[in-house]
Design a protein around this nucleic acid. Structure first.
Length: 431
DNA sequence: TCTGGGGTCCTAGGACCC
DNA sequence: TCTGGGGTCCTAGGACCC
């Protein structure tokens, strides 16, 4: 087969991260909750076995699971992000072609590798990642990404594989058998809606989808499904891209710790989200052309009046300046604000029309910013970022942003940020 | 009391133009 | 009776992913 693709995926990533520095959690059911301790977003195998499902609201977790030693964790993205970077660094020692896909998954390319020893190479990779980071991973190897996803699931499900599974050629009986066993809804790229429609047409396994006429799939569904079907046949439709493009939009949104109709609180949250989006914008060296502010009530509280509203305002010129972005976001909020008392649950600030900082182009209607202004702004932002990096994220903020306000997230069960904070480093006792 | 956040891509349909 | 047609751009919404 042509140069295969591997998918490396950390097993139960967030739950596994929680265990690395707290060995007593091994063997216990561990659950990681979303922001605001809202719902379940990760589970250890023991928690899965207790029937705790993905997305289950925290207050629906059956109380009897506590008897089994259930450990609840608030999400600790600082820890997960750092652990993810360690895994990535390890992967780079095994192949130059590494394309991060999500916080816990990467695609690996093996151009020029000897395929007869590739599986052994990946077993070595798996052991090394575990030794260097403490995290268990699974590896699926196949001619296309869609097949690598299937191979990875197989590796994870069957301990006999030792955590690494390489799909032989597409026409190999073993591959055909795997496709025949895979429900169509378990294929990467096929969600609930499309799965139901496919099943109604009698296509209920990966094998049936692979055997369907691509042009018919395109006509009945979309080019996306057509590509998926081709990938199942071993035809690569998604090229490797190890230099990921920068983001096309940047969004920061959070639920409030407590629902609120207090305008001052919401203004404060909007300032914080706008500042955070601007920081991420500078990190990827882009400028934004517009700001969108979104405000939403709690859709689960049907007895209260509902409001889901947003507005987009242009920035005076493409900018990464926190002050300009915060000011525009505040103006947007003022325009959105309704005089009736509405209880809001969430707000967000999205930066749009992003352009590369080095290749920016002005719109005919935009006021150019003088070089002088531009330099002053760059200098100010660099100083702001340095202070916040050195002394903590909230050292210098635009307007008031209290860290203990009601709108701030709840996170009652957060573990230490073991690897990124001096005052939270793990300790060892010598006996 | 209590139900996440951040992305991408595709498509349909409206506005507008000639 | 009978009211063009085709291209492009933009936006909103759907679907999916982790």
């Amino acid at each position: 087969m042509r140069a295969p693709i591997a998918l490396v995926d950390c097993n139960n990533f967030y739950a596994s991260c929680e265990r690395v520095f707290r060995p007593r959690l091994h063997g216990l059911p561990v659950v990681v909750l979303s922001n605001n301790d809202g719902c379940v977003i990760a589970r250890s195998q023991e928690a899965i076995d207790l029937g705790i499902t993905m997305g289950m609201p925290a207050h629906h977790i059956p109380p009897e699971t506590r008897r089994h030693g259930l450990e609840l964790c608030s999400s600790n993205y600082e820890l997960y992000g750092d652990m993810s970077a360690r895994v990535l660094a390890t992967l780079h020692t095994f192949t130059p072609l590494v394309e991060p896909y999500s916080i816990d998954e990467s695609w690996l390319g093996f151009e020029g590798f000897d395929t007869s020893t590739l599986a052994a190479h990946c077993h070595d990779l798996r052991h090394t990642v575990h030794r260097w980071t403490g995290l268990p991973v699974s590896v699926g190897i196949a001619p296309t990404r869609t097949l690598a996803k299937l191979a990875n699931r197989h590796a994870k499900k069957h301990p006999g594989t030792g955590g690494v599974f390489m799909l032989e050629g597409v026409h190999h009986p073993e591959t055909q058998a795997l496709l025949a066993r895979t429900p169509v809804g378990d294929i990467w790229g096929i969600g609930g809606r499309v799965a139901v429609r496919l099943q109604a047409l009698g296509i209920d396994t990966a094998l049936a989808l692979a055997q369907a006429q691509p042009s018919w799939l395109r006509q009945q569904f979309s080019v996306v499904l057509e590509r998926t079907a081709r990938e199942l046949c071993g035809i690569n439709c998604i090229e490797m891209n190890d230099a990921p493009d920068s983001r096309k939009m940047i969004m920061t949104s959070r639920s409030f710790g407590k629902v609120t109709s207090n305008r001052r609180d919401i203004e404060e949250a909007v300032r914080a989200h706008a500042s955070n989006s601007a920081l991420r914008l500078r990190a990827q060296r882009s400028l934004a052309g517009a700001v969108m502010v979104m405000l939403r009530t709690n859709p689960h509280m049907r007895h209260l009046s509902q409001d889901h509203t947003r507005i987009t305002l242009p920035l005076p010129w493409p900018t990464d300046n926190t002050f300009d972005i915060v000011r525009t976001a505040q103006n947007a909020l003022a325009r959105l604000w309704k005089p009736q008392r509405i209880v809001y649950q969430k707000c967000g600030v999205q930066l749009m029309d992003l352009v590369d900082i080095d290749g920016q182009q002005l719109d005919v209607f935009q006021t150019p910013q003088s070089n002088d202004e531009r330099q002053r702004s760059d200098h100010l932002m660099a100083t702001l970022d340095q202070l916040n990096a050195r002394f903590g994220r909230h050292t210098v903020t635009v307007g008031m942003q209290r860290s203990d306000a009601d709108w701030q997230l709840r996170c009652a069960y957060r573990s230490n940020r073991w690897t990124t904070r001096w005052d939270e480093l793990p300790g060892a006792r010598l006996t």
